[in-house]
Simulated assay, not measured.
Amino acid sequence: MNTLAPSRALNADRINWRALPDFTGFTYSIMAVDRERGTTDFCVHYEPGSRIFLHRHRADTLMVVMAGEHRIYAEDGQLQDARPAGAYAFTPADGDIHTEGGGDAGAVVFYSTRGGPDGVIFDILDDSGAQVGALGMAEVDALFDLQGRVAGA
């Protein structure tokens, strides 16, 4: 029995990017959600020179920069890392508070998350570092439903 899903080319220019209301600087596309295993895979397209909201990863997160330059900023706003296309990084759960965004030409980044307490993937923080929200498995799964459960659709 073949249980492998057919492969699809992941071409950032052909992804149907979606916006989240009330958030600026990026668009996203969900690739896969497995609530039973506690995993999500998604891509984010960061606008050139953007910085998104402050947050903390609550789940282990793997990322690969597909295009452009992915910039990571410390909680105080200082540039912490500039990752070129092809870069791979791992962020453990409950790591440092930070923001991220695109370099001069923007960035496209693939993320894969694993686990997270009570299904929480990210804590969303205000400028003072206080938690104002969370993004979890249920929310990502609902976004995937809205997308038609088709990767990159």
Rank of each mutant, 00 (worst) to 15 (best):
L4A: 12
A5D: 09
P6D: 11
A9T: 07
L10F: 15
R14T: 15
R18K: 08
A19D: 15
A19T: 13
T24P: 12
G25M: 08
F26D: 07
F26R: 15
T27F: 05
Y28V: 08
Y28F: 07
Y28P: 04
S29P: 07
M31S: 13
M31P: 05
V33E: 00
R37G: 15
G38D: 09
T40I: 12
D41E: 09
C43M: 13
V44Y: 09
H45D: 14
Y46F: 15
E47Q: 12
S50E: 06
R51Q: 13
R51E: 04
I52S: 00
F53K: 11
F53D: 14
L54G: 02
L54F: 10
L54K: 04
H55Y: 13
H55P: 12
H55A: 00
H57K: 04
A59I: 03
D60S: 11
T61Y: 07
L62M: 15
V64A: 09
V64D: 08
V65A: 04
G68C: 05
E69Y: 08
R71T: 02
R71P: 02
R71S: 05
A74D: 15
E75C: 14
L79Y: 01
P84T: 03
A85Y: 00
A87M: 06
A89P: 06
A89E: 05
F90Q: 02
G95W: 11
G95I: 09
H98F: 10
G101L: 11
G102H: 00
G102K: 00
G106W: 01
A107R: 00
A107W: 08
V109G: 02
S112P: 03
S112K: 01
S112Q: 08
G115P: 13
P117K: 05
D118H: 14
D118F: 10
F122N: 12
D123V: 00
D123E: 15
I124M: 12
I124G: 09
D127V: 07
D127E: 15
G129C: 12
A130E: 10
A130G: 01
V132E: 11
G133A: 06
G133Y: 02
G136N: 10
D141K: 02
A142G: 02
A142Q: 10
A142P: 01
L143F: 15
F144I: 01
L146W: 07
Q147L: 04
Q147F: 02
Q147M: 04
R149T: 01
R149M: 10
V150E: 05
